[in-house]
């Protein structure tokens, strides 16, 4: 565990707390893509299946259980508690365009051709692109609530912080995990546009608005 990973994981935790806080305080899930949130449930379930047969550490166990349960809770909030505030006509990205190719890629590019390894690899690829429905939705509406942008900034920062962690681990442990690294760089890259607007507008006190 190094400082970059710890900060990355804390950013990930923070993003979830921000999202739940947004939904509870505004009593709404407006501006949040249900599809992206559903993809995260799939990501966590396929990646953390090792909970059933491996013990790594208490930290690792608690975080995995938290990510699975909180992502399920978010889906519940969107699907039941705040359902009337969700507008499916804005959430139109086709997730099969993400899930299908990620699964095929996981079948081809993996470390071992085993069920759990393929599921892990699939989860890494899917996580990299799971934000697409959310970004697509914001592109359509051209705006986002400030709290939603804080959520996305924390979520993007999480994987971005894993990159210096991988560099650190390369120099201290000599290990490289090419699947995670390549997917992590792609994932972070997808946020660059968003980060630009976040830093130049939201952090200057302006509303998040995309040019028409």
């Amino acid at each position: 565990m190094n400082i970059f990973r710890l900060l990355g994981d804390l950013a990930h935790l923070a993003s979830i707390f921000i999202l739940v806080h947004k939904m509870h305080t505004t009593r709404s899930c407006r501006g949040i893509s249900f599809k992206t949130q559903a993809l995260y449930v799939l990501v966590f379930l396929t990646r953390y299946i090792d909970l059933l047969y491996t013990w790594i550490s208490l930290y690792n166990f608690v975080m995995k259980v938290f990510f699975i349960s909180s992502s399920g809770y978010i889906l519940y909030l969107m699907k039941y508690r705040f359902r009337p505030t969700h507008d499916p006509s804005l959430d139109t990205f086709k997730v099969e365009y993400l899930v299908g190719p990620c699964f095929v890629l996981a079948l081809i590019f993996n470390y071992r051709f085993e069920v759990t390894e393929i599921l892990w690899t699939f989860s890494i690829y899917l996580e990299a692109v799971a934000i697409f429905p959310q970004l697509f939705m914001m592109q359509r509406t051209g705006e986002a609530e400030t709290i939603t942008t804080h959520y996305l900034a924390a979520l993007g920062a999480y994987r971005a912080l894993y990159i210096p962690n991988w560099i650190y681990r390369y120099f201290t442990e000599g290990t490289v995990d090419p699947i995670a690294v390549v997917a992590g760089i792609v994932q972070t890259g997808l946020y660059l546009d968003f980060f630009y607007v976040y830093v130049t507008k939201v952090l200057q006190g302006q509303k998040f608005e995309l040019p028409a």
């Binding site: 090792d50 690792n60 681990r169 290990t175 995990d177 995670a180």
Partner: peptide, 10 residues
Amino acid sequence: AGPPRAHDEL
């Protein structure tokens, strides 16, 4: 040999 992936990462 196991895969080169970091099993301890989230």
